[in-house]
Design a protein around this nucleic acid. Structure first.
Length: 93
DNA sequence: GTTGAGCGTT
């Protein structure tokens, strides 16, 4: 399950984001989106977890949680590959 | 040195 994390602190990096989620389950990949111009964090990121139950638990526990004095928002990510072929959605079938 | 709604590359 792809997870979208926003309202992050600017000091949070992708590895930090991973550490937040591995606490609730296995994390296949974690990325904090950094600004290409400044190289700093944009304040949001994405986490991919193979276990949906662990992902939902992580969302439930981490959403609204306080990190670095700021309440982060954790929700399910929207599909990124909308312009790709139809096989992007064929994984469930 | 700064700031604050949002959905990212291979």
């Amino acid at each position: 399950m792809n997870i979208y994390v926003s309202n992050l602190s600017f000091i949070v990096r992708d590895e930090d984001l991973r550490e937040f989620f591995v606490e609730y389950g296995e994390v296949s990949s974690a990325r904090v989106i950094t600004d290409k111009a400044t190289g700093r964090s944009r304040g949001f990121g994405f986490v991919e977890m193979p276990d949906d139950e662990a992902a939902r638990k992580a969302i439930k526990e981490l959403d609204g949680g306080t990190v670095d004095g700021r309440a982060i928002k954790v929700t399910e990510a929207r599909p990124r590959e909308e312009k790709s072929n139809n096989r992007s959605y064929a994984s469930k079938w």
